[in-house]
Design a binder for these strands. Structure first.
Length: 488
RNA sequence: GGUACUUUGGCCGAGUGGUUAGGCACCGGUCUGCAAAACCGUCUACGGCGGUUCGAAUCCGCCAAGUACCUCCA
């Protein structure tokens, strides 16, 4: 692998050189959605962030197995161990089978991801499809002595674990402080300590999502699915585990504890966390009720939105910020992204039609390197975009005849733009697909050529009639120096 | 209260010791029958105070404001 990738490891709080455990194979696990509600802007961030990583790793030549789970059981409301199951609650409210809820929202999630040009992961395992694995994993932790059974449920013994390992190393917490600050909750009497977490929960009589286990009819704890499925598909040790920063504690911390307790070692080499999307400086989240669903973005149907925004605009907006920074949403910022993206994509289209000259008056030798360096430096997509905009200026100057480019340079520039815009950033023009078939395009061209003739004859009435009527139909007509451009 | 982090020009947002980030907006210009669009150019900021240094947005200290996590959340 010629280019050295550096990624920020949350575990060490440093950028580290990426060295796969079993080159050329790379195992990547990312926490996916709990499918009990419509996907919102917050879901788009990790999906796009790790989509970029997935694409880039493959570009570097690695064989990547990308696992993104679907949480469809075990994720409880209010309290990790005491609330109602999110899926089950939604099912009860809507009078549906839990798996109907899962299917419905999973379909909507997939559809939104497809619109955002997020590639499908290699495997999308469901928690409910891996109950056996979770029971086995829980048994291993029991056998190792780091868990205890209590009234049909199994809890992780954090304090005992902490004597042999270090609980809290990912999120930078220590157990004593947590014991002081964790408030007491009702119904925790079956747990020895408030910080212990559930590996297996006995189902109450009315709980409909339940499976047989050695301890009780019940269901797995939320943190268990990732440990069990990560191990199953990526092995006892794998390269990268990603997810939102809000999952760092307790979810990922508990995963580490479960893996260390069961396997005697941490499963994950690099932990990566994307930051949150904020709205007016506050985290956009389900619990705060200030989230905007992706569908609302695509339709513009939300009070905070001045208009609809295309999936590509959302994707570009997210990529314009580094994944470890918070990014503050506003309609204004999105509009800025929309215009920037349009300019970039038009320039990209223009680049395809550029004529080569004998020599180059522009220097494009640094463009590829700048993009490569930026990507390799912890996926610095804003820097990549910045380098592309720099190169775009040259493209436009060549287009205007103010600069020239040789065939070799032109091919290189086209290659770099394709690689970064299409293959790695996953951007595509919104209008490209909307512009219809070839025959249709020729028909529009024909009309505009008639208009061009009229213009030459100074027949402004005909010229304006064609322009105005096409504009009224939704076409955008641009007069250029010696012709025209149009789009829908 | 604990822990982690943030503070960059009108807005968004990169950047970790010396060099123009970039985008959007504004303004100026080019092009144009008109208009629109497009293109080019300009705009040089880094919360406050102090320190280290030849030199700091970038390192250190203090202060201020804000955010996240500590209960479910991507």
């Amino acid at each position: 692998m010629e280019h050295t990738l550096y990624i920020y490891n949350t575990l060490t709080r440093k950028k580290e050189q990426f060295i796969p455990i079993h080159e050329p194979h790379v195992g990547l696990y990312v926490c996916g959605p709990t499918v009990y509600g419509d996907p919102h802007l917050g879901h788009a961030r990790p999906a796009i962030t790790f989509d970029i990583l997935f694409r880039y790793l493959k570009h570097l030549g690695y064989k990547v197995r990308y696992v993104r789970n679907i949480t469809d059981v075990g994720h409880l409301e209010n309290d990790a161990d005491e609330g109602e199951d999110k899926i089950a609650k939604k099912a009860r409210l809507d009078q549906l089978e839990p798996m109907e809820v899962v299917q419905y929202y999973l379909n909507r999630y997939r559809k939104a991801m497809e619109a955002l040009k997020v590639l499908s992961p290699s495997i999308e395992p469901h928690a409910s499809g891996h109950i056996m694995e979770q029971i086995e994993f829980t048994q291993k932790i029991l056998d190792a002595g780091y868990a205890y059974e209590s009234e049909g449920s199994v809890y992780f013994d954090v304090e005992k674990y902490n004597r042999d390992y270090q609980y809290g190393k990912l999120s930078g917490r220590n157990i004593d402080e947590m014991l002081e600050t964790t408030r007491d909750l009702d119904g925790q009497s079956e747990k020895r300590r408030s910080i212990d977490f559930a590996l297996w929960k006995k189902a109450s009589p009315e709980h409909i999502m339940r499976w047989k286990s050695p301890w009780s009819q019940g269901f797995p704890g939320w943190h268990m699915e990732c440990s069990a499925m990560g191990t199953k598909y990526l092995g006892e040790q794998f390269d990268i585990h990603g997810g939102g920063m809000d999952l760092m504690f307790p979810h990922h911390e508990c995963e580490i504890a479960q893996s260390c307790a069961a396997l005697g070692k941490d499963s994950v080499k690099y932990w990566m966390h994307n930051n949150m999307i904020t709205i007016n400086g506050q985290k956009m989240g389900k619990s705060l009720g200030n989230f905007i669903t992706l569908e609302e973005f695509f339709t513009g149907n939300h009070v905070l939105l001045t208009k609809a925004f295309s999936p590509m605009t959302i994707r570009f907006f997210i990529l314009q910020a580094h994944y470890r920074s918070t990014v503050d949403f506003s309609s204004e910022a999105l509009e800025a992204s929309e215009k920037g993206l349009e300019r970039l994509m038009e320039g990209y289209a223009r680049l395809q039609k550029l004529q080569a000259s004998a020599t180059s008056s522009v220097n494009i030798s640094e463009v590829r390197k700048k993009c490569e360096d930026a990507m390799a430096d912890d996926l610095n997509t804003p820097m990549v975009i910045s380098a592309l905009f720099d190169a775009l200026r040259s493209v436009n100057l060549i287009h205007d005849g103010k600069e020239t480019i040789s065939q070799a340079d032109l091919s290189e520039l086209q290659s770099v733009f394709k690689l970064y815009i299409e293959d790695l950033l996953g951007l595509q023009s919104d209008s490209a697909s909307a512009n219809g078939t070839e025959a249709y395009q020729k028909a529009v061209d024909l009309l505009l050529n008639i208009r061009l003739e009229a213009k030459k004859n100074k027949d402004w009435a005909t010229s304006d009639k064609i322009r105005n009527e096409l504009t009224a139909m939704g076409f955008e007509i641009k007069d250029t120096k010696d012709g025209f451009e149009w789009k829908l």
